[in-house]
Write a protein that binds this DNA or RNA. Sequence first.
DNA 1: TTGAAAGCGCTAACAG
DNA 2: CTGTTAGCGCTTTCAA
Lengths: 340, 340
Amino acid sequence: MTKRHVSLKDLATELGVSVSTVSRALKNHPDISPQLTEKIKKIASERNYTPNPLAMGLLRAQTRMIGVIIPDIVTHFFASAISGIESIAKEKGYYIVISSSSESMEKEKESVENLIKSRVDGIIVCLSQETNEYSHFQKLIDNEFPVVFFDRICEELNTPSVIVDGHKAVKEIIRHFKDNGCKRIAYISGPSHLNISKNRKEGYIEGLHECGLIFQPELLVECNLSANDASLATKQLLNLENKPDAIFGINDTIAFAAMKEIKKYGLKIPDDIALVGFTDEFHSTVVEPTLTSVTHPTFLMGREAARLFFNSFEKGPTYNEKVTLPTELIIRNSSVKRKH
Amino acid sequence: MTKRHVSLKDLATELGVSVSTVSRALKNHPDISPQLTEKIKKIASERNYTPNPLAMGLLRAQTRMIGVIIPDIVTHFFASAISGIESIAKEKGYYIVISSSSESMEKEKESVENLIKSRVDGIIVCLSQETNEYSHFQKLIDNEFPVVFFDRICEELNTPSVIVDGHKAVKEIIRHFKDNGCKRIAYISGPSHLNISKNRKEGYIEGLHECGLIFQPELLVECNLSANDASLATKQLLNLENKPDAIFGINDTIAFAAMKEIKKYGLKIPDDIALVGFTDEFHSTVVEPTLTSVTHPTFLMGREAARLFFNSFEKGPTYNEKVTLPTELIIRNSSVKRKH
DNA sequence: TTGAAAGCGCTAACAG
DNA sequence: CTGTTAGCGCTTTCAA
C-alpha cells in the first residue's frame, strides 16, 4: 500500500495552513474561524483523514487497548465473556487484545509480560487452573496498573473482581437432588486452590448438611477440568462399592464427560444416577437426556468485568469493587427421577 | 501507575551517554565497544526496559497487529480458527485484534473501518453470512492492503484464501448415505450466495448423480445458519408428503437443531432418518445418537490463513495463493441404519 | 486568529 | 566509537 493514511501534515500542506491549525479546527477549537474550520473539516473527510492512534498513544502514553487473559478461547464460557468485554470496550472506543494462557501458569505469566510490553492500558483476567501463586499480578497492582479478575479470581488480591454465587447455586442443586430422592450425592470438583472449587465445595458441604445428609469424602473427587480427567473421576465414582445416585459436575464439560462415562457403564440417567452441570452451554439441550444445569451469566460477566475496569480508571487505584452475579438452576431431564 | 516504563532516554541519562548509543548497544551495533554494550544491556535489563511499540509503530508505520473479522466468537469453529491464527501470529511477534461482525454485513463494514483506523497491518476475515457485496474489501485490495479470507470467502476477489473441500466432502456423505440404503437425501443449506453453500450444493447434486439418485428440489432447503431457522427448515422437510430418509446439515449447529426437531416428530435417528453434520464439534459425541460429521480442520485453517497472511507480506500484492484443506468423514451412530 | 516549536520514544543518516 | 539531528503524527504551550 503506497501511502496508506493521510496525516494532519498532508491536509495542512494541501490547504496552505499549519498543522496546528488543522488540528485545532478538527476539534472545534474556538480560536479558529468558523469558515476555516468548515473548510478544513470538509477536506479532512474527503481525504478520509483519521487520527493516527500510534501518535496519540505516544503522546498520551496510553493505547486504548485492554489485555484479556483467559485459559482458552474455544470454551464457550470464555468466548462469551470475551464477547461481553468487547461489547462494552467498543462503546468506550477501546480495543481488546486476547491472550490465552492454555490453562498454564507459565503461559499466563508470559501473557502478562507480553501484554505489558505492548503497553495495554490494563488487563482483565480469568486465572488459569494451574495458577496458585500471584506475584505476576501483585507486581502490577503494586504499580497501580489496572487489573480486574472474573470468575477464577484471586481473593487475596486487592483489585476489582466479578464472580458468580457458586455457594448458593450448589446449595440449590443439592436441595434439588434431595427433592428427587437422591441420598448419595457426588461432586466432581476442579483443582482445590481455585476459588470456584472452594466456593462450590462449601456450598456442597453446607447443602448436604442442610438436607440432613452427611458428607462422604469418597464422593468428592477432583479433576483438572479436562474432559479426560473428568472421565477418570467419574470412573472412580462408578467403581465405588456404594455408588452415588447423583453427580454434580463443576462445569458442563465435566458433566458431559460424566454423562458419557455413566452411559458406558450401562447406567441410566437420571434414574440410576441424576446429573447436573454448571454453566449451561447451548448443548445442554441437545444431549440425551437434556442436562440440568446452572446458568452462568457469561456474557454479563464479561460486561461487568469491563465495567469495573473502566471504573478503576476513573476512581483510581483504591477502587476495589467486588461483584457477585446470581445464577439460576435450569431443571431438565438429567436430574428428575421418575420413581423415588 | 506513576512512571510505567523506562525509556531509552532514562537509561541514557542514568549512564551519562546519548540515546543513540543506548539504542545501538541494545541491538548489538558493531560500532559500540563491547564493554559499553555489556554495561548498557545490563542496566537495561535491570530496569526492565522494553521498547515502546507505539514509538516503533510510528516510525515504521506498522503496528504488528492483525485484524481478524469473524461472524462471532462464541461458535466453536470461529474460536478455534482464531486460536490457530493466534498461534502463528504469536510466533511472529504479532498481536491479533478481533472484531465480530455478528453475521451482519453492516457490522462487517464497520469492523473493517475501525480496524483500518487503528492501523492494523492487514486483516484476516471469514465473511458474515449476509455479505453479498464486497466493495469494502475490494477497496483495501486495490490499495494493496493485505486481506486474507478463510472458509467463507469471496471467490472473485484477487487475494489469498483458505477453504475446505466441501464439494468432495459432501459427495462422500452422499455415498455414505447411499451405502446405508438412503434414497431421499435432503440437504439443509445456508444462504445461497455463500461459497460454502455453493460448493456443498454442487457436491450434493453431483453426489446424488453419481449414486444414481435424482435431485429433488424439495429436498434442498435453505436456512440462515441459526438454530432457529434450521428447526424451521427441518420442519419443512418433515412435513413433506414424501419425507426424506436422510438429512445432511451444512454445519453441526444445523444438524443439532435438526436432531431436536426429528426427535420431536417422534422419528428415529438413524432408522427413520439418517443425519450427518459438518464441522465435528466436540459435542458430536455427546448427543444421542452420536452425530456423524465431517471434520473441519478448524485450528489448522486459522494457522493456514495466518501463514498466507505473512506470505503476502513477503511476496507482495501479487501473491494470491488459494489453499484447499481436506476433510474427513467421521462415521458415528446417527447415520448407520441397522436394517436396510 | 494563526503559526512555530517542543516533545512523546525511537531509529537512522550524518558528523565528528 | 559516540553524539547530534531530523522526523514518524500529533497536541500544546508560547509567540505573534
